[in-house]
Write a protein that binds this DNA or RNA. Structure first.
Lengths: 150, 150
DNA sequence: TGACATTGGTTTCATCATAGAACCAAAAAC
DNA sequence: GTTTTTGGTTCTATGATGAAACCAATGTCA
């Protein structure tokens, strides 16, 4: 078997998430969708992705419930691709990636974009906390096997 | 040019982040590293990845500053791969992916693992907030071009 | 000391996925 | 009614991947 390995059977939630949106283009498409893009040509122009690959990615993102394809009013052949509720739940993933990128992948003086609170125009915070509100870093976190609910 | 497109030049921080850790295996390796794995054979066994690909991925993760390769005490040829500070900053990305996976990619009765607070043994929370503490969803967030400093 | 297994890879090769370009149909613009 | 734009599909060459074989350096055991 030479096919790309699937992580679908894996019991790690991150692995399954990556199986759904973990290829080179899917998350970029989702990013653009968060940014308001809906049309094939918008994605294509924004990403510079090959059109056959874009078509394929849009198809699988729809299949997997991240996007919906709605026929536009204009002609029934045209489609608009919009984030589903499930797709919008990828927001924290996008924010986490952005924060990492902003922190480590830009030179100090380099122009950049950032995600801000629409109301205040101020950068967002992303916090991982325990139930009591303490901030939790990698060393305070443990992966725990949840026993099967009977 | 047929080479896989690089997003390095892109001014979106998420794009750059994906350029560094956005392929099928890198984030899984990082996940295992968060889980305490350090050895080639541990990663290989855990992921079922082809060894040449694992070797290549470890090399580039080291190159990019996500992992460090430290020779083990035993023999100088053996390496231990550990997360750098930069690598540890991927923690929120991992948590966000896990949360998405837990929420959408498991059947209700299915056995699973989850990330908990080591002290309390309780699931973690991931919050995106404005500076004043309000929770921010995708619709309250805007991408803003930061004008060049200087 | 010698035989065998284990670790940590590298090399080779067949196949799959991707990029790029050409092509095409339907609608829209003129 | 001709041209342009949109939204793709098809085709082909090349890069990336998975599997397996190979190898060197240690470690294990008798």
């Amino acid at each position: 078997m030479v096919a790309r390995k699937s992580l679908k059977g894996d019991y790690c939630p991150s692995a399954r998430a990556l199986d759904v949106i973990g290829d080179w283009w899917s998350l970029m498409i989702v990013r653009d969708a968060f940014d308001g893009m809906t049309r094939f040509s918008e994605f294509q122009k924004s990403l510079g992705i090959a059109r056959n690959i874009l078509a394929e990615r849009l198809r699988t993102l729809v299949e997997r419930g991240i996007l919906v394809a709605v026929p536009t009013a204009e002609g029934r052949a045209r489609m608009e691709y919009r984030l589903t509720a499930m797709g919008k739940d990828l927001f924290p993933v996008m924010v986490a990636l952005r924060q990492f990128g902003e922190r480590h992948l830009f030179a100090p003086q380099e122009p950049r974009s950032r995600l801000v609170d629409r109301a205040a125009g101020r950068p967002l915070r992303l916090d991982i906390t325990a139930e009591d509100g303490r901030a939790i870093g990698p060393d305070e976190a443990v992966i725990e096997k949840v026993p099967e609910a009977g």
